[in-house]
Design a binder for these strands. Structure first.
Lengths: 143, 143
DNA sequence: ATATAAATGCAAATGGTTCGCATTTGCATT
DNA sequence: AATGCAAATGCGAACCATTTGCATTTATAT
């Protein structure tokens, strides 16, 4: 379902290589957490390179289409975030206070034989998303 | 964590009763699935009543603040959806093809003693969201 | 080396959501 | 039942993430 680095390289080799695509890819490779388009722009600008936001969106759409990246919309965030599709499904906890994203290293669905009970027949499941929410230690203190 | 009807009534009694709020509440009560602001508007207009979209958003914000409703942003949808906070946590499956939302009647987290392994200490979990994605039988056929 | 289709730079449009302000409404008090 | 006041709403405009259109540039196959 998810890929290792070689698998990513194989997918990348199937699309045209351009400088903007390399820039976005480099940022995603280095990121430990999914990033928004604006965050990716900021990372690229830090290196002195220039790129347009619409180009980033187009590249991210392509990456998602080619299964290179995964797009998510986390709790109450008003923008989408993107991460490489290289981890065995990773999930996150989101702080309601500061919107910090914290990586979760395990998954409740992977470890047992969960059978979803859906109100419609014949749904073919291709993936899942789990999000915990609550307060990080810092925001918890402030309340 | 979630509430029954009486608990909702108790929360409602603490806020000023107005016609627009009643209209939105009526729609949410009848809905089997979470609805977007625009869908709520459409339902209200079907009854011949008139209401402004910005009013709906303000009412929904209030309902969320008062724990009367829950706001979610489902996979790849570009708008938020809202549902009453009356079910013992309900999760959904979302069709990648037609964006149909299908209710899931069980939950993988409720049934076992899952201990999340987070990369940050002291996170206080207040809730969670689980979403399956894939293709509904109809969209699956088309592929 | 060149042709061609695809990608990008840039600006303008779009669509969901929020904000500002004048008017109206619900409710507490008389 | 009438009054006053804070809060809610109607309405339009603003906002912000994302998308689109088009002229120009670029990567790759020939």
């Amino acid at each position: 379902m998810t890929d290792n680095i070689d698998e990513l390289e194989r997918k990348l080799s199937k699309i045209k290589q351009t400088k903007p695509r390399r820039l976005v890819m480099d940022v995603l490779r280095d990121a430990e957490k999914p990033l928004s388009a604006v965050q990716i722009l900021a990372e690229i600008e830090k290196t002195g390179e220039q790129i347009w936001l619409s180009t980033i969106y187009r590249i991210l759409d392509l990456f998602v289409e080619k299964d290179i990246a995964i797009k998510s919309t986390l709790l109450d965030q008003d923008q989408a975030v993107y991460g490489l599709n290289q981890y065995q499904h990773t999930h996150y906890a989101v702080c309601i206070g500061c919107h910090r994203i914290i990586t979760m290293d395990n998954c409740p669905i992977a470890c047992d034989s969960f059978e979803p009970s859906l109100r419609e027949d014949g749904f073919r499941i291709t993936g899942h998303k789990i999000e915990l929410y609550g307060y990080c230690s810092e925001c918890d203190k402030k309340r």
